[in-house]
Each structure stands twice: as structure tokens, then as C-alpha cells.
Simulated scan of single mutants.
Amino acid sequence: VSRRIDPFDTGSVTIGSFDGVGSFNAIKEQVQLKGDVRLMNEDTRQTLRDQITQIANGVGATFGVQVDMNYDDNYPVLMNDAALTQQVIDSIRSADIPEITKIFDCGPQDPSEDFAYFAQAKPSSFIYAGCQTAPGENHPHHSPDFMMNEDCLLIAAKAMGSATLALLMAPED
């Protein structure tokens, strides 16, 4: 990625599954790789897709193997509406929920999220709720060590309820 897109842009390619079914001591007739592409700018999408296709076809040509690629552009970039997000932050802060000790902007993120489709249709704000099981134990989602503290569900519900009520009671422009 670092050699193929603008260094000020963000993109990641992860091959999370490499599966060659069969005996451990024989060359496999076929292997299957599965991965995930994440990006922060829709203009980068086609560049990454083209480059992955070029690399896959190059490996196939180099080793004389057939490459079948199924590339699914399934999630758009998730974009928060800045004004709505600030309203959400302000309403959660003013709700004075004792369990919420920090509210901060974690900067641009690149989740593969269904919520991105809602954000394309309506002004939206995607937030994370911290779910540490113990102080200092922070394992991100999709990590093999991730363990959610289920108490965060009630805290997140209070935060969203407060934000929803504040937005519903706000005067319309």
C-alpha cells in the first residue's frame, strides 16, 4: 500500500486467511486467500483494487498458475457528519453520565461497517463505546484477545439515549 497510494492517504490490505486444504506434505492443487481492504478516501478504492488485481495476476503469470479473483467492494467509506457529531458529543457531555469518564474524537477510522450505508443517506455519527475488561487491557475488535466488558452496553445505551433525546428536543433550523 505504501508504494501504491499517496502517502498522505490511508489504506490497508490484510490477508487474514490462507487456506490450502489437503495433506501437510504435498503441494496443494488449490489454495484460497481471503482478505480485507480498508480505506479512508473513495478515490483510493479503484487504485487498491487495480493494484491487488495486478499483483495477483503477476503471481499467477510468474508461477504458471490460474488465479480466480472475487473482489467485493462491499462497504463505502464511513463518514461522520461533523455538525451532528459535535451535537452528539455535546449532548453526552451535558448528560453527566457518571460512568462516562472520557469523550474524545479518535480521528479518522476505517471500519468495514454497515452503518456507512446509513451515513450515505442521512447525516450520521458513528461512535465507539469503550469496553475494557480491566484497566490497561485494551484489545481491539477482531483481535483474538478481544473480550468485551458487557457493562459497556448499558453505558452506551445511556449515551445514545441522551444524545437521541437532546437531538429530538433541539429546535429545528
Rank of each mutant, 00 (worst) to 15 (best):
E137K: 15
D114P: 04
T53V: 11
L84T: 00
I27W: 06
G161N: 08
A26W: 01
S23G: 09
D68W: 13
A129L: 15
A129I: 10
L165H: 02
D114Q: 04
S91D: 13
D90Y: 09
I55H: 04
Q51N: 03
P171A: 15
F115Y: 14
A56H: 07
L168A: 14
E29D: 09
Y75H: 10
V13Q: 03
D72A: 08
D9N: 08
S23V: 07
T101L: 15
R38D: 14
P98V: 04
I127A: 13
Q132C: 05
T164F: 15
S91C: 10
Q86Y: 06
R4P: 01
Q87W: 02
A26H: 05
F115D: 05
M79A: 04
N57D: 15
R4F: 14
P7A: 01
S91R: 12
I89L: 13
S125P: 07
F63W: 08
I103Y: 14
M148N: 01
R3L: 09
I92A: 02
V67L: 08
G130M: 15
R49N: 10
N70R: 11
L165Y: 05
V13W: 08
V37D: 04
D68T: 13
F104S: 11
C106G: 13
S162C: 05
H139G: 09
Q51S: 03
D73N: 10
H141I: 15
P7G: 11
L39T: 03
I92S: 00
A163N: 00
A56L: 15
L84G: 00
A156S: 06
P76W: 00
E137N: 15
F8R: 04
R93S: 04
K122G: 03
M148C: 09
E29R: 04
N74H: 04
G64A: 07
A121M: 03
V13E: 02
T164V: 13
T62G: 04
F24P: 13
L153V: 02
E99P: 03
S143Q: 11
V1N: 10
Q132K: 14
G64K: 02
T14N: 12
L167G: 11
M147W: 02
D90H: 06
Q54E: 12
R93H: 09
V77A: 00
A119Y: 14
I89T: 13
G22H: 02
L165G: 02
A129N: 05
G35M: 05
Q132G: 12
G16W: 07
G130F: 15
V65Y: 12
A121S: 13
D50V: 09
H141D: 07
Q54R: 03
N138P: 05
V13M: 06
D105T: 12
D90G: 04
A170I: 12
